[in-house]
Computed example of a mutant assay.
Amino acid sequence: MPDNNRPIYSLLALALIMLALTCSCSDETGFKGPVEMQLWDLVTYEGCTDGGDGSRFTFRQVDDSPLITLISPTLLPAETTAGTRMIIRYIPESGEAYTSGNITLLSAARINQSPVATEWKEEFDNWNRDKVYLYSVWRTGNYLNFHVRLTYDPEPRLFQLAADPATIGTEYPDIYLVHIMASPTDYHDRAYFASFDIAGVWNSPQTKGIRLHVANTNLDQQEFTFVKDI
């Protein structure tokens, strides 16, 4: 039986996102005084507010913690649709982290997203051909989130989660992070965020958790277990 460990795996021992900083500087040449708290979070864009004069975002801090709603007067581009997963940097007007309320939105960017595949395709057989440098992986509600480094290539690649159909509905289904580039490439790498909807597997009544498999080149850990809060 998998251990019921806390389902945040950070292989750099750093909180690389959802990071709150409150600090002050007082050197002879620099800025003196407090710096406003800034937060970075992976969120779901829920669309415009009811009055159409702002943007609404929701997220959970970790696991199944309460849903947080953030409201910004900044409107996103019209082509940004509800349900888009994003990483945002913002200042909470209340000065309190991880509480619902109004924010000053400093930046917003789309991230990779898709639902977990529940039908295995032949192309998934090479799921571990192109390796992944895994910084961290954590669950927030029905989303499994990743911070990774991948080899850069302008060509499209296959990068998604795929479940082993034979294990769906069991206590611990197996899910694979599929990373297959258009062709093997030896080039520089870049950091990416991704957020995959695992509801199609996670929400099965028989399921107690999932086993995630990653072709990970950061430390010797290829399997990660996430357990439901019961």
Rank of each mutant, 00 (worst) to 15 (best):
L12D: 15
D64R: 13
T49M: 03
P73Q: 01
S114Y: 00
L150V: 11
A13G: 15
D3T: 05
P34V: 04
S100F: 03
E96D: 06
A162Y: 12
I17T: 15
V35E: 13
T58F: 01
G209V: 07
I168R: 02
F31V: 08
F146E: 08
T99N: 08
A78R: 01
I87G: 07
E171T: 09
L161W: 12
A78W: 02
G47M: 00
L150N: 09
I175V: 15
D186H: 10
T118A: 04
L19I: 11
Y98P: 00
Q113W: 00
Y90A: 04
Y192I: 05
D125L: 14
S24V: 12
R157H: 12
L105K: 12
I91L: 03
D164K: 09
A162D: 06
T118E: 04
V137G: 05
T74V: 11
L14P: 00
K131T: 12
N216H: 09
A163C: 06
G200T: 03
G141L: 04
D27R: 14
S72L: 09
S55R: 03
R85T: 12
F146I: 08
F196M: 13
R190S: 14
L158Q: 09
A15E: 15
I17M: 07
D63W: 00
Q206M: 06
N128W: 05
R149M: 12
L11N: 00
I180S: 06
L16I: 06
D174W: 03
G52F: 11
K228N: 10
T84W: 05
S94L: 07
R6E: 07
T58P: 02
T22W: 12
H188S: 14
W202H: 10
P7A: 00
F57M: 09
I180R: 08
D220C: 07
P173L: 02
P77F: 10
N142T: 11
A162G: 01
S136V: 00
S204M: 12
Y176N: 03
V43M: 02
D125C: 03
M18I: 04
P92T: 01
Q206L: 09
T58R: 08
E96Q: 14
